[in-house]
Nucleic acid binder design. Structure first.
Lengths: 207, 207
DNA sequence: TCATTATAGACCGACGGTCGGTCGAGAAAC
DNA sequence: GTTTCTCGACCGACCGTCGGTCTATAATGA
């Protein structure tokens, strides 16, 4: 019955299970007991590691955004053009990891609002500074110019994370594409490069 | 003990009380019983009018965004320049009505996530089309031009509503101003008008 | 008088969180 | 080498709260 594990291992075990369950059933619908059953531990053990259910979510969100920021940070040392770095940095945060294993997902909209908000918040806070570094490098190299680097990146991140989140706006593929095109266009304007410069580069790499 | 009221009156009474309480204590922390005490009704009465606590929130959000959209719509018939209409339309949605009567407010961040998300969602859906009309009028009158009217407005709305919401990002007055300036600057770029055109108009009216 | 509508509040089950206590590995004492 | 002690990991019964249900009944009106 009783299995003793290393502190960090056990803690990660709980975080992993919670992440799986939150993604599968939604934060609100997932109970602490669900997590206990998954990890095979008792109530007390759970609350030995976390002081609340919300604290587990915070741990998940932190881990998620830290990984994204680290990946983006690594792009900085790459030996490529600022534009390519920018694109790679954006790719770094698009890790819709979790296997979409369940069809219930559609219904979660209001069961994950808090998680979405926290993720958005952390993502903007941790990614914006990294993006700003890339923007500034591009300015030095005369690739582009930019009046409000930090604020523009915050605006870009906030709007793209919000509008491309299926959990918030249900949109068909076409309107998703239109939003993407508009977002790229806004980025071009923010950096004062001529129209479609980024769009072309984007299509070559991924289109 | 038993007071009978008109159906709509009673329903609005509940919505009003809930709105006050949700703003004061936060949605999660506000219990149905709190609402009952405020309105002086019994559980059964509440559930006679609403099938869930969340449904009351939906009613609040709907009423809120409908009023905002109506106000904005009314701006359309005004006899002013497209730029002024645009500014008035933005003002129309900035109704931070509720008196900030409590100091607990600071803590609510995570107690209102769902409400914020729903409001953002409805706001974008209902305001964007109205703004697009103004944009198109401006295009006709050669005040500006615009490549993706609807998408740009969605981007603008999503980012401004997210970044200026104190509940999500705690920012001091200075960074709030910087964000505002950057948002206005983005709008200028979206509509291809020269730098600071809107900023100047904005400062004249409100600065 | 009878049906419909509105109100009431006791009650329920589920859930997040608490609390007192158990277990066992290893350090310390003898 | 054995006993004692400490301490961190773990357990699960229990509790209070909360959203939601159910049934009774008062008021209305046809």
């Amino acid at each position: 019955m009783r299995t003793i594990k290393d502190y960090d291992d056990r803690k990660n075990e709980i975080i992993d299970a919670a992440e799986r369950l939150f993604n599968a059933k939604g934060y609100e619908k997932c109970t602490v007991n669900d997590i206990l059953n998954e990890v095979k531990i008792a109530k007390g053990t759970f609350y030995y590691y976390f002081k609340s259910k919300e604290e587990v979510m915070d741990a998940i969100v932190s881990r998620y955004t830290e990984i994204a920021a680290q990946r983006a940070e690594r792009v900085l040392c790459l030996d490529t053009s600022p534009l390519e770095k920018l694109m790679h940095a954006f790719m770094a945060m698009q890790m819709k990891d979790q296997v979409h294993d369940d069809m219930l997902e559609e219904l979660h909209k209001s069961d994950n609002a808090l998680m979405h908000q926290k993720t958005l918040n952390m993502m903007v806070l941790s990614m914006a500074p990294v993006l700003v570094k890339i923007i500034e490098e591009g300015i030095e190299k005369k690739a582009w110019s930019c009046r409000y680097p930090l604020q523009y990146m915050q605006i870009f991140l906030a709007s793209s994370l919000t509008l491309t989140d299926e959990g918030i706006f249900e949109q068909n593929t076409d309107s998703q594409k239109e939003i993407m095109a508009a977002l790229i266009s806004v980025l071009e304007k923010m950096l004062n490069v001529s129209e479609d410069t980024f769009m072309k580069a984007f299509m070559q790499n991924f289109g």
